[in-house]
Structures are given as C-alpha cells and as structure tokens.
Nucleic acid binder design. Structure first.
Lengths: 346, 346
DNA sequence: CTGAAAGCGCTTACAG
DNA sequence: CTGAAAGCGCTTACAG
C-alpha cells in the first residue's frame, strides 16, 4: 500500500501547521473562509482522507457498532442485519459484523475483540447454547452499551428487542384450536433459550385455555435448524404420536419436519395443519407453512440499532427492558397468496 | 462508558514500565517467564483488553477488511457474506459490512469511509448502476488491495471472483433446447453489468449453436429484482410473445415472472419451462424454478476473501484476473427433490 | 485568525 | 532482562 497523505502533507504545501489544517477541514470557525478553501482544494488534489483510526484515538469515538449474530446465511438473520445496517448508517455509524455460528465460545471471543476494537456499542443475538454470562457481566460493569435482539438473556441489565413470542404463540395455537385442531404437536426450542421457552409457554397456555391438557410426549425439544425439525418429526413418529397439527418453533424446523413428512407419508402434508414462526423470505410461493407468525426481521434490527444508538448518546438507559416489535399472523392460501388472519372472524 | 484499563495501569501496579507490559502480554522473548506470569495475572484481574485502535495506529495493521454488497437481505448475498465472514475470521480478520442498496453514490461513500477506517483491503460487489470508476482508479493508485466478487468491473486491474456466467447460461439454455424448447424468452440484466451481459451472451450462443436466430423482441432488459421480473413478463405479454421456456437472469426476477404468470394465466406455469440463475436458499421445497444454475454463494465469498487476504499478505498480485467458482445445473423434480442434471444424458 | 504543546494507548528501535 | 525515547495521525485546550 502506498503511503497516505496526512495533515502534515497538506500543511507543508501551504506553509501552515497541521492544527490549522485539521480545523479547516472540519469547518472550525477559527479558520478564515479563504484558508478553508485553499486547504480543501489541496486536500482533494492530493487525495487526502482522514485517518479515522487516529481520529478515534484522540476523540475516543469510533462511530462503529459491533454485531454478533448466531447465523447470517438465513433469511431472518439477513433481514435483521439489513435493518441494523441501514439504520446505523443513517446515523453515521458503520457495523462490524461477526457470526457466532451458535457457538458460545466464539460468541465470547467476538465480543471481546469487538470491545478491543473500541466499538461504541454491541448488538447481540445470543447463541442457543450460551449459558455462561460472565462476559456480559463484565460488559455491564464496564458500562459498554449493549442491546440484545431476538434472543436475549434476561435480568442482566440490558435492554432487548424481541417479538412477543409467548403472546404470538398463544394466539396462533389458539387459532388452530378454534379451527378444529385438537392434537397439536410442538417441535420446540430449548427451554433455556428465551424463544424456546416463551413459544412453548404460549402453546401450553392456548391449550389449557381451551381445556386441553398439554401432553409432554407431544413436545420435542431441540435446536432451531432444519435437521432438528427432521429428527424431531421422526421422533414424534417413533413415539406413535397422532396429530392433526404441528407447531414448529422456527421456519427451518418446520421445513425439516415437512421434508420428514414427505418421506414418511406425503398425505400427512394435507392432513396435518402446519404452523411455524418465521417464513422463507420469499412470499407467496412456498406451500409451507400454512400458518405462520411473521417475524419482522428488518424492524427488529432497526429498533435494536435505534435503542443502542440512543443509549450510546445517553438518551436511553439500560434497564432490563423488553421492547416488543409487533408480529402478524399470516396464512398461505391454496393459491399461494398470503393474507393476514383476522382473529375475530375465526 | 467506564474508563478502560491501559498498559500503564498494569505497569503502575507492578512497578514496571508500559513497554515491559506490552512485551510481556505479547510474549516477547525479552521478558522473563516470571514477569510474564505476574503481568498476565494482573491484566486479567483488572480486566485489561488491548486497545486495538491504538495498536493499529502504531502497527498500521487493523486486521479488518471492508465489504460492500448491493443487498444483504437476499439469500445469495447473505450466503456470500457468510462465506467471507467465516474465512476472514479463520485468518484473524474481522469484516466491516456496508450495503450500497444498488446505489453507486452510496457505494462510493462506503468505500471512502472504509478506506478512512484503514481497512487492509476491500471486497466489493458492484451495484447495478455503477458506471463511474473514479474511486476504483484511486484505490488502484493507492495500491489498496481490492477483490471484486459476483459483479465486477473489468480491466481496472483488480482480481474478481465470479461464476462462469456465459458458460453456465449457454449450457443451461442448450439443455432446454435439447429437451424440446424452441421459443425461449429471456428476462435479462442490463448489458453494462457483467452478469447481465454474460448471461445474455450465453443464451444467444446456445440458440445460435442450435440454429435458432435470437430474437431481440424476446429479451427484456431490466434490473435483478422481483418487480423487474414481474414487469418484464407483463411486457412480454404486451408484445404478444409466445414462448415455451423462460430464462430469468436471477431468482428474484424469475419469482416476479412466476407471480405475473399466476396472475395472467396459471396454466402457463405448467406449459412454460422455467430456468433461472440462483435459488431461493431453501432447497427442495419451492416449486420454482424447475431448472436452475446454483450459485455457490459461500464458496464465492470464501474464495474472494482468500484472494484478498493473500493479496494483503503479498503472496498474490492484483491483475485483472477472473477466478471462476464452479456452478451446478439443478432440476427440481415433481416431488420437489432436487437433482443435478447430467448433460450427457439429455 | 494561527500555532505550540500535550496527549490518546500503543509499538518499535535503541540503550543500558 | 528492563526502560527511556520517539512516533503513529490526529484533536483538544490553551496562548498569542
């Protein structure tokens, strides 16, 4: 790489000092218009670009936020990252993106290196397997702004942006029951992860509210990927579970179960009502799932970034608050058109 | 934010100087094992983390690469970013992600700010509308390592990682012809964008090779999104084009055309053979497209990152080279299983 | 309106 | 084995 132009290079050409150049470039009132003009001309002539690393060291502002997501090559994550990126950008921040790959150890390392890079705040979606909170306690002690999104750890003193998993699950499962389903199996997430626990709670509450006692045999815990859905459905079969509906904790899990069904007995696809959280990212073309809770990824990302930047600027305080982003309950019709379900009608 | 511990804080506790601490922490042979041990203990005790900004300023290495993509919330882009992220990570680099949103002006701004951030190299996929190459000439002059991926600008002196668009399009369209299609329309990309031009060339070559003269009326140029596909198909209808096959430049374009067909006359979906570059990201469940050229997003990302890091380390030289990542030609069968098409058989 | 001094937290090169 | 000096490119606070 070629040596880059510095303030001093401009200063020498103009017989000024670097301080004046620095000021002129930043439109400091100290400097006369005539000088500013000359300085800027020379700057663009020699292709000067400020060294943000140096600037950060003095100003202790990097205009950078660190993002940790469990996955990126999935529709939902990509949407969230897009939302974060766009909003951060609009406020002059840039994002450093890291991926934990659902690995708590990697998650911790990424957080450490982001902190070392002096990011001004962190946006993290916790990996499924994370149980150790030491790093988060340290972040808290250091008063480094952090906002959880989608998957959070409660009671650590951070704000989180999430959807109302419990409420949305309850409503959705309630809708299945009202439309005639009685034997509703659930491919659930792990209980120690917020989304797993909450969605299962909503499921159980809906059942109880309609006088159905939840049967633990109809619930299979697992992680949130396609494989898990595939295995989960096979396990339900092995247990000889009869069902008229299946509620999957995520879209990929549902996808896995769909594949398993096709393998086992394709007629199940018509007989079993499919409900899942999240969609494929391509609307109105995938035959599955019939019912789904739309997770507004971009909106979650945008809101999380907004909260974080407000916290960085001091206008919001961290405080164990859960900010809910609204979801919609959608139905894929037989002609593949998607419509919102009206709960009052069913 | 609380004040962070510095080398001096550790030095004071141990009655040493910051230089020794710096060396001890980095396992410099100058320092005795006993001292190293004491230093590291104190460091972890007070939660010291090196300030990478300061380190970068002295070492002029940031271990950071800048990424510019036109979109992120799309399956293919997300795959590429995942590939970049993972590989860069494995070599100790972190990525700063920016999104141009297909806006050349934003693309330029992002590149400038990444350079100002002192990223050690750039990975960029050019936006559709980019025609101005000034910033790239400057990057070249400054000898800042840059590798294009997926969408590139030729002859600027940079290496690019791409798929063999022309060859893959030719093979795929050739396959359609061999299986009986004669009237193949094409929803193309713009001619000034590499993927648009190349794919169209492959299409035309395949036709000619089979004695069919390409009809410009059967080709609609546009951008690469769903809307463009929708409008493109409507335009083909307006032109009264008859077709037995439709080749879409990207998956979203094909998706748009699919939606337009359903609206116009659903029976077309069965009558018109659908071919596209790229897939939905969810395998074996989407009924469309029947034939597709799989774009190995992760592999493109990985390879581009590898080339860039090699260039940063000096083992690879920039030189207008096109590195091809192999594609596969796939068919979605009626049972939604996906199989690779064997060209020798058809 | 312009500049000299000090410092951000670290590393490199040189002394002892 | 340990340390004093200089400097990375910039900004802040203070003089003149």
């Amino acid at each position: 790489m070629k040596k880059r132009a510095t303030l001093n290079d401009i200063a020498q050409r103009l017989n000024l000092t670097k301080v004046s150049i620095s000021k002129a470039l930043r439109d400091h009132p100290d400097i006369s218009e005539a000088t500013k003009k000359r300085v800027k001309e020379v700057a663009s002539e020699i292709g000067y670009r400020p060294n943000l690393i140096a600037r950060s060291l003095t100003s202790s502002k990097t205009q950078t936020i660190g993002v940790v997501v469990p996955k990126i090559a999935h529709s939902f994550s990509a949407q969230v990252v897009a939302g974060i990126q766009r909003y951060a950008n609009s406020r002059g921040f840039v994002i450093v993106l890291t991926v934990s790959d659902e690995n708590p150890e990697l998650e911790r390392k990424h957080i450490e290196s982001l902190v070392s890079m002096q990011v001004e705040g962190l946006l993290v979606s916790v990996s499924m397997a994370t149980r150790e909170t030491e790093i988060y306690n340290w972040i808290r002690e250091m008063q480094i702004p952090l906002v959880f999104f989608d998957r959070y750890i409660p009671d650590l003193g951070f704000n989180s942006v999430v959807i109302d998993d419990r409420g949305a699950a309850k409503e959705a499962v309630g809708h299945l029951i009202k439309s005639g389903c009685r034997k509703i199996a659930h491919l659930a997430g792990y209980n120690h992860v917020s989304i797993g626990r909450q969605r299962r709670q909503g499921y159980e509450e809906a059942l109880r509210e309609h006088g159905i006692e939840p049967d633990p045999r109809m619930v299979i815990e697992g992680d949130v990927g396609e494989d898990s859905g595939y295995r989960g459905f096979k396990e339900l079969q092995a247990r000889n579970i009869e069902m008229d509906a299946l509620f999957s904790v995520t879209f990929p899990v549902g996808l896995g179960s769909y594949v398993a069904m096709r393998e086992t007995d394709p007629s199940m696809i018509d007989r079993i009502e499919m409900l899942a959280f999240g969609d494929s990212g391509i609307r109105g073309i995938v035959p599955y799932p019939h019912f789904y809770v739309e997770q507004p990824g971009k909106e979650i990302g945008r809101k999380a970034a907004e909260l974080l930047l407000d916290e960085i600027e001091g206008s919001v305080k961290p405080e164990n608050q859960l900010v809910y982003v609204p979801t919609r309950f959608l139905e894929t019709n037989s002609d593949f058109q998607v419509t919102e379900v009206d709960f009052n009608k069913s």
